[in-house]
C-alpha cells in the first residue's frame, strides 16, 4: 500500500504558495484534491492538458463524418431535387454545425472517462473522510528512501502554512 502525507486545508489560497515552498525543498506535490478547479493551483502544479487538442480532433471528425454522411444520402444514394437546389447544398451547414457540437461533447466526455480510468462502479483512488465536502487536500508521496526526519519536515511546512490537519502514513 502506497503511503502518503496529506495536508488538509480550509482555504484554497494557502495551497499554491505551499506547493512552491515544497518544491524549493525538493519535494514534489503528487496531487491536490479540491471541490472546484482553482487556477492558481493548476499553475503552481504546472499541470498540462491535451484535452483541447482532443476536443479539436473530435470536432474535425464530427465535421468530416457528418459531411460524408449528408453527401452520401443526398447526392449518391438517393439524389432528389428539392426546390431546385443542388444536391451538395448550403443546408448541410446547419446539420454539420449541430453534429460537430454533439460529437465534440460526447467524444470529449468518453475520452475523459477513458483517460481517468473512471466509470460506473470503479473504486475511488482515495477514499477517506478527510477528502470530502469543502476540504482542500494536498497529497505528497512518501517514498521508501524518505526518512522520518524528511517527513517530519514536510509535515512542519504543511502545518506552518495553515493546514487544519496533517496526517502521515495514510
Amino acid at each position: 500500500m502506497q503511503k502518503n502525507i496529506i495536508g488538509i486545508y480550509k482555504d484554497e489560497t494557502l495551497i499554491a504558495p505551499v506547493i512552491n515552498q515544497l518544491r524549493e525543498q525538493g519535494v514534489e506535490v503528487k496531487d491536490v484534491y479540491t471541490p472546484f478547479p482553482v487556477n492558481d493551483i493548476i499553475e503552481a502544479m504546472k499541470l498540462k492538458t491535451n484535452f483541447p487538442y482532443f476536443a479539436f480532433a473530435f470536432g474535425v471528425i464530427g465535421f468530416s463524418l457528418t459531411f460524408l454522411f449528408l453527401y452520401w444520402t443526398s447526392a449518391i444514394s438517393y439524389p432528389l431535387v428539392l426546390g431546385g437546389k443542388p444536391y451538395l447544398s448550403l443546408s448541410f451547414v446547419v446539420i454539420i454545425f449541430v453534429m460537430v457540437i454533439n460529437v465534440t461533447v460526447t467524444g470529449s466526455l468518453i475520452a475523459f472517462f477513458v483517460r481517468e480510468k473512471k466509470g460506473p462502479g470503479t473504486k475511488p483512488k482515495f477514499d477517506s473522510e478527510d477528502v470530502n465536502d469543502d476540504k482542500f487536500v494536498v497529497f505528497i508521496d512518501k517514498t521508501a528512501k524518505m526518512t522520518d526526519d524528511d517527513s517530519a519536515k514536510i509535515s512542519d511546512i504543511l502545518r506552518s502554512s495553515g493546514a487544519v490537519d496533517v496526517k502521515e502514513n495514510v
Partner: peptide
C-alpha cells in the same frame, strides 16, 4: 452572415 445568406438563398 450565414443566416442572412442562407435564408435568402433558400427562399429564392
Amino acid at each position: 452572415w450565414y443566416s442572412q445568406y442562407f435564408l435568402i438563398w433558400y427562399a429564392n
